[in-house]
Design a protein around this nucleic acid. Structure first.
Length: 112
DNA sequence: CGAGTGACCGCAA
DNA sequence: ATTGCGGCCACTC
């Protein structure tokens, strides 16, 4: 199934997913891209984030290594600060136990 | 409308 | 273990 079939674009789906990430939880670019139907389109997620709405919790979006985004507005420190404020432990520039904090949306939501 | 860039991921050497 | 390259979609010039 492709997002295009539903008439929704990848970026729209990314917005929905990011907006639904609960506090204290994080998602990886690859994970979001995979949910969109393009596991190799992690780059697009990053690009969308750069041009996306600032209202969305992009600070909860990190890379597979648990590392923070490089061009986050304010710097990685700002993103780390936001994550720690939500109860996420951040060591240096990587999240501690990011795999445990990996959040996954309900299967029903995948059909969006 | 065409080309370039991008907050990444995964594999091969 | 580290380094290098390809791939995908959307946005900007």
């Amino acid at each position: 199934m492709s997002p295009m079939d539903t008439g929704i674009t990848l970026n729209e789906l990314v917005y929905s997913l990011v907006a639904r990430i609960p506090s204290g939880r994080v998602m990886t670019y690859g994970q979001i891209a995979a949910l969109c139907g393009s596991p190799r389109a992690a780059r697009i997620v990053g690009g969308i984030a750069h041009f996306g709405s600032e209202e969305l919790p992009w600070h909860r979006v990190v890379n597979k290594r648990g590392g923070l985004a490089g061009a986050f507005p304010g710097g990685r420190s700002a993103q780390a600060q936001l994550l720690e404020a939500e109860g996420v432990s951040v060591s240096a520039e990587s999240i501690v136990g990011v795999d445990s904090l990996m959040w996954w949306p309900p299967e029903s939501e995948e059909q969006l």
